[in-house]
Structure formats: structure tokens, C-alpha cells
Computed example of a mutant assay.
Amino acid sequence: MINTIIFDFGDIFINLDKKTTMDGFKNLGLKEWNEDLDQLNIQFEKGNISRNEFLAGFQKHMPNASIEEIQDVWNTILADFPLYRLEFLQMLSKKYRLFLLSNTDSIHIETFEQRVGSSFYGDFYQCFEKVYFSFEMGMRKPDAEIYQALLNQHELQPKRTLFVDDKKENTDAAAALGIQVWNLQVGKEDVVDLFEKNIL
């Protein structure tokens, strides 16, 4: 019997618009997403580099763009956060131990909080026993250590814990530790369909 649920954030609660972001970078002169940008993103999500180092790294690939323009485009990925998902989460929080585990960075979280306001994000964070962001933890999914950290910290039993994420590599890594998983298919499924999945 599941008594704990660990949720991802992006495309689970807040919708992401990756196409607009990529189009925006192309308009700023980026030829293609590459390994260097991938590594910058990973290091920033782990909190290993500063905001300035991250943005300057991107600027090398778009030399005619300003730091402000790059940051603005970086934030276009953050779309809407439907209220019905928050209400569903609030209902869930009365029955289960809930945790948030997100690969994210300081720019995106700061922007999310500014956009939705303290009342909304306060209500959201309050649903969770603890909120975990990769940039604060110094580790990220799908590395096994990040799941193990939650299991150990909160004395969670893997077989009684469900992990919900839209990326298969992340749910596969959790499943390898014995955690129950739901690899949510974005655009076809919604987090509020949880009870229809017969996992709980």
C-alpha cells in the first residue's frame, strides 16, 4: 500500500513550453542545442555554477545576444500552472506524505515564484512535507544518490513510495531502487488522473 508520493515539478504541475524557448534561442542566433549547453544546464541544475557563469556560457553560443535577452528566453519555458492541479494536490496531502523533487535552477524557481505570487506558491509548497530542488541539493535525477537521499532522510520504504515524473530515465532510475513509479505521458495524461492508474 502506497503511503508516500514523490512528484516532479515541470510538466507535472507547471506546464513547460520547450518549443518557444528553443525558437527564442534560435532567434538570438543559436544554431543548435549542443553538448556544451547540455553540460551548462546540468551544472547549473546541480548548483555547481553561478547564474552569471551559466548565462555567460550560453552567451558564447549567441554572442550578439545580451545576458538579459538570454535570461528572458530561458524563462519562456515556464508556462501556466492550472489551479485544478493545486486543488488536487491539496486533497492528496490529507491522505499521503508528499515530496517535491525537481531538476531545476535558481532562475526558474525565482521566476516561478515571482509570477504566481507568494499566496499561490505558499499553498503549493505547503502540500509537501519537504520540497527538494536539485540546485540546492547538489545532485540531480536520474542519479541514484538523489532518490537515496530522500529515502534515507525521511525513512521511506521504496515499495510503499510512488514517484511521478514525465522523463522515463528518471522513473527507470527510481524503479531500480524498488520505488513504485508512474512515467506520466505529457499531453496524454494529467497528474489528476492518478487514481485512474490503479497504482495507489
Rank of each mutant, 00 (worst) to 15 (best):
I2G: 01
I2R: 04
N3K: 14
D8I: 10
D11Q: 13
F13H: 04
F13G: 01
F13N: 06
I14T: 03
N15R: 15
N15K: 13
K26R: 11
L28I: 10
G29L: 07
W33K: 04
W33Y: 14
L37E: 04
L40G: 00
I42E: 04
Q43Y: 08
Q43P: 05
F44K: 12
F44E: 05
E45H: 06
K46M: 15
K46W: 06
L55H: 02
N64H: 05
S66C: 04
E69I: 01
L83F: 10
Y84Q: 02
R85S: 01
L86E: 00
F88Y: 06
M91F: 08
S93F: 09
K94E: 15
K95S: 15
K95M: 11
R97M: 01
S106G: 06
I107V: 11
E110A: 15
E110L: 09
T111K: 13
E113C: 07
V116F: 11
V116K: 02
S118G: 13
F120S: 01
F120A: 08
F120T: 13
Y121R: 04
G122E: 07
F124C: 04
Y125P: 07
Q126N: 12
F128K: 04
F128N: 04
K130I: 11
K130H: 15
V131E: 10
Y132M: 07
E136H: 12
E136I: 06
M137N: 11
M139P: 03
A144K: 14
E145W: 08
E145M: 12
L150P: 01
L151T: 09
E155C: 12
R160P: 09
T161Q: 06
D165I: 08
N170L: 00
A173G: 11
A176P: 02
A176S: 08
N183C: 14
G187M: 09
G187V: 12
K188P: 00
E189V: 10
D190K: 06
L200I: 13
